[in-house]
Structure formats: C-alpha cells, structure tokens
Computed example of a mutant assay.
Amino acid sequence: MFRTHTPKAAAALLTILAMALSACLLTPGRFTSSLDLRRDGTFRFAYQGEIHMLALTKLAQMGSKPKVFEPDTCYNDEAKERPCTAEELADQKQAFEERLKQSGPKDKAEAEQMKALLGGIDPSNPQAAEDMAARLRRQAGWKSVVYKGDGLFVVDYAIAGRLDHDFVFPTVERLPLANAFVQLSRRNDGTVRIDAPGYSGQSGAGNPMGMALAGMAGAMAKAGKAGKDGGDLPGNPFGPFEGTFTLTTDGVIVANNTDEGPKPVAGGQQLDWTVNIRNAAPTALVRLGS
C-alpha cells in the first residue's frame, strides 16, 4: 500500500508561537549589563545592546500559511520517497482548498488574539516595530531605542532608584507577557536576591526562558527552520546570544554562582558573569544595611 506524508511543520510552528506568547517574547542579543547595589538600598541598573522581540520576527514570517498548493511527499511501503499518483495529488489539492476556505475566520481570530497579547500592536503591520519602539521610549530608563529590522532593537537603558520594592527588567507598557531578564527581590531579613533568568539559554525547571528557547529550537528544527547562517550559538534559533553582567556592591555577598567569586574594587566588591547560551543564569544574594 502506498501512502503520503503530511508534514508536521504547522504543528511545530504552533508550538513555537505558544511558547513565545506564554513564556518568551523577548530575548537578549549581544549586550553588556551592570547592577550597582548599595547597603542603603540605592541601586543603578544598566543594559546596553540588542533585544529581540520574537513576535515581530521569525514567528510572523513562519506563521503565515501558504496560499499556493504545495504537494506533500509520497512514500512507498519501504518508507522511500516516490512520485505521487495523479489521484493522490488531486486528493491533496482538494484537502488544501478546503483548509484554505476554512482558515479565513480562524486566521482573523488568531490575529486579534496576538494583537491583544501585544497590547494593541498588530505584528503583521509594517509599522508595529516602530510603534513598540515609541512605546519603550516613553518609559523611564529607556534612553535610546533603535529598530534595526527583523525584530531586533538596539537599546540603551539605565535607571537608578531605591530598592524598597522588587525590580524587574524589562517591563513594557501594556505588554503583560514580557519575560524578565533580571529581577531583584527584596526580603524581610535585609537581603536582596538577584536572579537573571533571561541571561541564560540553559533549560531547566528554574529557568523558563531556557526551557522556551530549547523547545522553540527543537520545534524549528522539526519544521525545517534555522537561524541566520553563521554566528548562531547552539540552541538559540534567533541569533547570537552573548554578553556580560557585572554586580558591584558594598553590601555582604552571601551567595553567588560565579566561577571566580567576588573581587575587591573601589567602593566594595564585584561579581562578573559571562553570559551565553551554555552558562547558567546569574544569581546572587546580597545583605544590605550596616
């Protein structure tokens, strides 16, 4: 008995889309980032470099459904490719035309859902990226936001304040699903926990960012998609992912996961992390106060 093969690319693309919407809309590119945390609770945080917004790049391109019939591959009983018969091609074309007729309302509903999740921005609109850049520029801390195309923004972000509440970077106005690159959690015992889940591509229960990237990479591979040729780091389907994160403080460093540990610098101690797809997410615990 002969049989045809139905590609699973569409299912893989839906998996990618679901992951991006639920856990991972933003990813770093090449960047430098720093945090200065003082015992009196004041802090300065900075991020300079690239940020990828997945909903404005590969997802929009890959999620588009073909409007022209493309026949599936046909196989024989030994699972070897063979030419499709005229009857098989006719059946495939009929099924394609039926799907095309039914896709209109569904596509419209999916587009409206995506627009709602992006705070009113339609990712299929050529102006969407500039609208997002303008939204970021209105927020405190975003000194410069330049859109380079293909979902890539180059930013200069710096903010200072007092850590009498938790802090998360980045936050995007009207975008509830923006995932955290860095988060500072103030505890009742006077310590501050620093976590940077967005500065790692490692998968694991403690890093939803890495889990999403790993899942999307696998789904893209199954769909026959790949990142840009040259320069992509293993496991990151959206481009180079590398940078540095530096923490300086005059507080007491209770715990950290750097390779070298703290080193003395003017005004306190310093921790340094090299960020890439392979290294663990930076984390530290610092005690404030006298």
Rank of each mutant, 00 (worst) to 15 (best):
R3K: 12
H5T: 10
H5S: 12
P7W: 00
P7M: 06
A11S: 13
A11R: 13
A20F: 00
C24R: 03
R30L: 09
F31K: 09
F31R: 06
L37C: 12
R38E: 15
R39Q: 11
R39M: 04
R44Q: 12
A46Q: 09
H52A: 00
L56T: 02
K58W: 02
K58N: 05
L59N: 01
A60F: 02
A60M: 13
M62P: 00
M62L: 15
K67P: 04
K67H: 12
T73R: 14
E78Q: 14
P83F: 05
C84K: 07
K93Y: 07
Q94D: 14
R99I: 03
K101M: 11
S103R: 14
E110Y: 09
A111D: 13
A116V: 13
D122T: 03
A129D: 00
M132Q: 05
W142R: 07
I159R: 15
A160F: 06
D166K: 04
P170I: 08
R174H: 14
P176V: 07
A178W: 04
F181D: 12
F181Q: 08
L184G: 01
D195A: 14
G198C: 09
G201W: 03
Q202Y: 03
G206V: 03
N207Q: 11
G215A: 06
M216T: 10
M216F: 12
A221M: 13
K225S: 08
A226W: 03
G227L: 05
K228L: 11
G239Q: 01
G239I: 00
G239S: 04
P240R: 10
P240Y: 02
F241Y: 10
E242I: 11
E242D: 14
G243T: 06
G243S: 09
T244D: 12
F245Q: 04
T249Y: 11
D250Y: 12
D250P: 13
I253A: 08
V254G: 08
V254K: 13
A255Y: 01
A266V: 11
G267A: 10
D272C: 01
I277D: 08
T283N: 08
A284W: 04
